[in-house]
Simulated scan of single mutants.
Amino acid sequence: MPFESVLTDDVTDVTDVTLRELTKDDAVAIAHAYARNREHLAPWDPARPEEFYTEEWHKERLWAQVLENSTGRALHTVLEADGEIVGRLNLTDIVRGAFQNGHVGYWLDARFTGRGLMTRAIEALAAHARDELGLHRLQAATLPHNEASQAVLTRLRFERIGFAPRYLKIDGRWQDHVLFQRILHD
């Protein structure tokens, strides 16, 4: 059964936001979301080629993420409001066996920040990861100066577990990250 959760926006009268699994039909809406949020996301994202912001780029590549969902290696989701993609929340690099771990990554449309939506989305994803996927641990990484993202993780009982120098190439350069984890079975 596909994963889906409705995230009520308690702050404003904006239509509810739905967190749901990515589908192959989302390519156009995702391209529009990234193009609309290009400046907003640039400081937090890897450098993107110009083609990344086109419908064609996403139509050619989205199937790989849908396939990862179907094989259990990942859970790629979108946040949707009124038929428009307004964010992504992904659980990737799922490792089974003794680890039972996944990595959490996310972004939210500039128009929807500050409402607690991503907090509710990650909480729904964490419950699904624990109850349906049987994961024991979630891990996330943020840039040291991304205080908003760190506040979301802290509210959700993620604990800081370390500092990784030059961890990811973000905005065109290797940047340090703060590492967080949440144990799901305590």
Rank of each mutant, 00 (worst) to 15 (best):
P43H: 05
L62Q: 06
V95A: 11
L143P: 09
L143W: 10
E68C: 12
I85S: 04
A31L: 07
Q65A: 15
E132T: 15
I94N: 01
F158T: 04
K169M: 11
L89A: 06
I94C: 03
L184N: 04
G102N: 01
H185V: 14
R61W: 10
G114A: 03
R111P: 00
L79Y: 12
N69E: 00
R111V: 11
N101Y: 11
H177P: 07
L7R: 05
R120I: 08
E68F: 12
R157C: 11
T8W: 07
F163Y: 15
V178Y: 09
L89Q: 08
L22E: 02
Q100M: 13
Q100D: 09
R120L: 12
D93F: 12
R36C: 01
I94T: 05
L79Q: 10
D9W: 10
E4C: 13
T54Y: 02
G72H: 05
D93A: 15
V95R: 12
G87T: 08
R61I: 10
R38M: 00
Q100I: 09
R96L: 01
A126P: 05
L184E: 03
A140R: 04
T15M: 09
A64I: 14
L62W: 08
A27T: 08
T12G: 00
D93R: 15
L7S: 00
E80D: 03
E21T: 14
N146A: 02
R38P: 06
T71R: 15
R111F: 09
L22K: 04
L138M: 03
V66M: 01
D82G: 01
L138P: 02
D82Y: 07
R73P: 02
M1I: 08
P49K: 08
P165N: 09
A29Q: 10
E56Q: 15
Q139L: 13
T71W: 11
P2Q: 12
V17P: 04
A110V: 14
R61F: 10
L75D: 02
G134F: 09
H136M: 06
Y53D: 00
L179G: 02
T113L: 05
H185L: 13
A141C: 07
G105W: 06
V6Q: 10
V28A: 12
T23R: 00
V152G: 01
L7G: 04
W57F: 15
T154R: 15
D9L: 06
R182L: 01
H177D: 01
E60L: 15
E51I: 04
F3Q: 04
L156C: 05
F3N: 03
A140C: 00
F3A: 01
A98S: 13
A81L: 09
E51M: 05
I183H: 10
D25I: 00
A141R: 09
D13Q: 13
V95F: 09
A126E: 02
H103P: 00
